[in-house]
Design a protein around this nucleic acid. Structure first.
Lengths: 156, 156
DNA sequence: TATGAAACACACTGAGT
DNA sequence: ACTCAGTGTGTTTCATA
């Protein structure tokens, strides 16, 4: 049994579910919803963070509001030996907000945010030095980022 | 000038920058860092939320810790007329934590989390009813999700 | 749109079970 | 591992500029 599983008793499941619903809830509020005292709830939160079950906290800003109305996805197929250069390039471009190494002929998938389509050429050119690119414009998100189901085990 | 721009004076820029660094900081702490009183800072936060500049707050859980060690990306090329069915299907599968409509021959890109590779066949089969799929396994993230640069304008 | 003071809620600690 | 109670800090409202 993994450390994680020990951490995922029914109370922590409730706690995580409550947190997913309202990430900014106070410990006191979470405690009420979980049926524990505030100190006990806090202790559980700290342990979940220490164990890495809770990886982090985020505030999500709207790219449009920040002046980036266009989101695109770019796949990159590196030329032989150019893989590390593409990584460095992606990291150095602030408009690249995600870059993933994936299996398949295209080794990378990245997400870029643009102020206008005019920016696209210049950005792609930078990558074309090291490989081929395939570009898609993001139109909508039928499933916007959402949480995975919790194990919902009955133990604990 | 858009509503957003009016909202992005230099103090709000500082405020958002502070929030991005430490999303769970207290209003009092943010106020100190921005150089305003707590009530004023709180007021600004509320407005930024109401205007949609702050889209939401997230707690990020580790998929591995929840029992989903494998992340994959699937592109789907729908057969004619099957596009809405694919959307519904994606929404109905909890392992699909993101699904994006994109331009190109593959209309959808989605992200799935698996308990094991054995799950893959069954999941892909569901989509293969409505179109072709291309699957990649996510190996690493040279650029893990990060924030866009703020406008950093001098006005305000 | 900001501030300061006051009322209230929350976080955190320590002692006890 | 939890609860309870006490203390200090943060949050929120209101009056005011």
């Amino acid at each position: 049994m993994t450390i994680s599983k020990l951490l995922l008793d029914s109370r922590n499941q409730k706690l995580l579910a409550a947190l997913l619903k309202t990430p900014r809830a106070s410990v006191t509020d979470l405690a009420r919803r979980v049926g524990l005292s505030a100190p006990a709830t806090r202790e559980r939160l700290v342990r979940l963070e220490e164990a890495g079950v809770i990886k982090g906290w985020r505030v999500e800003l709207d790219p449009k509001a920040l002046g980036y109305p266009i989101s695109i996805l770019v796949r990159v197929r590196p030329m032989p030996g150019q893989l590390p250069k593409i990584i460095k390039l992606a990291q150095s471009i602030p408009q690249v907000t995600e870059c993933h190494r994936i299996t398949g002929e295209d080794c990378f998938l990245m997400r870029l945010h643009l102020r206008s389509l005019d920016e696209l050429d210049g950005l792609l050119d930078k990558f074309l030095v090291y490989g081929q690119t395939t570009t898609s414009i993001l139109q909508s998100s039928p499933v916007p980022p959402r949480a995975l189901p919790l194990p919902n085990q009955s133990t604990g």
